[in-house]
Design a protein around this nucleic acid. Structure first.
Lengths: 229, 229
DNA sequence: TGGGAAAAAGCGAACGATCGTTCGCTTTTT
DNA sequence: AAAAAGCGAACGATCGTTCGCTTTTTCCCA
């Protein structure tokens, strides 16, 4: 079992570190020259974006809201990103890429499909817990994209689902899993993982920790797949 | 098993019929006098709202977008609702009330908890399929509400979940269900049902019908609860 | 090593566009 | 002809964005 603490120690998915990747990825679109300055400001910007996204949604958020909340002037904002729409695209693109990197980076040499499934579920949950506002933003804004970018967002979603599907298929082929519809099962797992960061208020109210939720999901799915009620 | 067709025949959840309830509920806030006129226009308005909500989100939608899409002038819009924010509130309030009515109206006298659970899952899925754009709108906009209304939206969500929780508790008490954590199981069911209308493109692409999805969810959950792998 | 010029970052007023909303007027229905 | 419905130009506010200017940081040679 992977603990949340061990995950954080190994992967260290802080907002600042992902912001640094985002800055490097879009260096030519950002007029701020020094990386440290850009990272510091972008971190404050994204904190404000995610807070405002929760309150009113990105579409209803004005850049003056963002200026007030982040403590940066309008000019300082525009020295960190080229415009409102591009800011959204940058956030979504980096978030999807980072998620894929982290999930695929996880231990690939687990002994059994059951262990691999457990690790994948835990990793996904722990990552979304560490960057919950980012995940929430990505989920809510993915459908408000221009056609081209929306297509890519859907492919990102399917790519994550494919990771679970591959594990299920391997388990079924090896005889350790019994499952009539692996595609729907993979989709179900994905939906349950997303519920954690979409409805955190609900689980917080019930006093459920991310590790408790992970344990429940793993047990629920595995008992169905292996028949150990 | 409840079929989609039987559900539609019995409940008839059309956009127009729910719009009529919405009009009656907010009669004093609407300057149009004749109900038929109000219902006809409101139906066109909501169709446009839901379409624009999918494309850019309610917050980023302008009333001029809405005017163009619905074919009604600005003045005609304002004769059907008092303002943009109130329109959102009206839609969310009526949707939540209608959902509760339909779910609670369903056959209350099923013989076993397993049958009651099956019917509840099917009813929820069929209703969200019939009014998918409305459900999608309600999900995406519920978090962008003022404090007071958001509290009520959360309570509506918990009320729906409570229906499943009650069935699970009854089954556990009667010995027909085995379940260590009924609260999380109820939350899991809710999350999986929501995924149907939130990610319909995914299931459509895979060729899954709403009845096929219902069958899968029922079988998956019941096999876990009863131990029949 | 200290001070001043060049470079970078930060600022907020101002621009045209568009927002939600209103209202005097015309068209349609009763 | 009275009542209801429908219309779209017009209003002040606010939107995303720009830009001339000030402040801070960096760097280099006296």
């Amino acid at each position: 079992m992977l603990t949340f603490q061990n995950f954080k120690k190994r992967t260290a998915p802080t907002l600042e570190s992902v912001c640094r990747d985002l800055i490097r990825e879009n260096k030519e679109r950002i007029s701020v020259k020094k990386e440290e300055v850009a990272v510091r400001n972008m971190t404050r910007i994204l904190e404000a974006v995610f807070a405002l996204n929760r309150e009113k949604g990105f579409g209803a958020m004005s850049l003056r809201d963002l200026s007030r909340r982040s403590g940066l002037s309008m000019g300082a904002l525009y020295s960190c990103f080229p415009g409102k729409e591009e800011l959204r695209s940058m956030i979504l693109r980096r978030g999807a890429a980072y998620t894929r990197e982290v999930i695929l980076d996880q231990a690939p040499a687990c002994a059994t499909p059951a262990e691999r499934l457990e690790t994948a579920i835990e990793t996904h949950l722990y990552l979304s817990e560490s960057l919950r506002p980012w995940f929430y933003f990505a989920y809510m804004e993915a459908s408000s994209l221009p056609r081209r970018e929306r297509r890519r967002a859907k492919e990102d979603e399917l790519a994550t689902e494919q990771i679970f599907l591959d594990i299920l298929l391997e388990g079924v082929a090896g005889g350790s899993f019994h499952c009539a519809d692996v595609e729907l099962t993979a989709a179900l797992i994905k939906a349950v993982l997303q519920d954690w960061y979409l409805k955190r208020w609900k689980y917080k109210r019930k006093g459920i920790t991310v590790e408790g939720y992970a344990r429940f999901v793993v047990e629920f799915v595995l008992s169905r797949l292996t028949g150990n009620a």
